[in-house]
Amino acid sequence: MGHQGQNRRTIAKSVIAVVAMFGFGFALVPLYDVFCEVTGLNGKTRGQYSEAEAGKQQVDESRRVRVQFIANNNESMPWEFRPVEFQIKVHPGAMAEVNYYAKNPTSKRMIAQAVPSLSPSEGTGYFHKTECFCFTSQTLEPGEEVLMPLRFVVDQALPDHLSTLTLSYTLFDQTEALLDVETENKNELAVR
């Protein structure tokens, strides 16, 4: 039967297509991140910016940009979480530092992760953080309170029509997800 050879080829091609599309579904995850990072959509700010790079920025004394700070707790997150200053004005190119306040009012040790989002999304490429509490997770003992620093510079190339940038942090409870990892690490150390 001549059909069998043809069928086998059709099956082979189809199976390759199926596997490729299954892979494509997963490839959408990094593609989505790259797309968001390139376009600044979704307000995703980029990772850590080096101090040296930030120092190279020329301070633009001719204008000031308003930077607003917002804090949100994700559902069921009991921490007190707020910015110390709600708004500051900075010259583009100049380094600025603000603090966020956090307190764990519960009677157990908790781990939190802050996730940033910047609005308008057009500005994400011009907002550089040299230090941020969002780069790592935060662990607080029962009743502990902390001031968490954020150092940033607004790029001198920020388009003129952007006069306000709003930075929002959402605090997520990561205790369950991360406590296990922590104990595991400790156990490993103990074994060693």
Partner: peptide, 8 residues
């Protein structure tokens, strides 16, 4: 063939 694998 193109989209059921994406659902999976």
């Amino acid at each position: 063939i193109a989209v059921m694998p994406v659902l999976a």
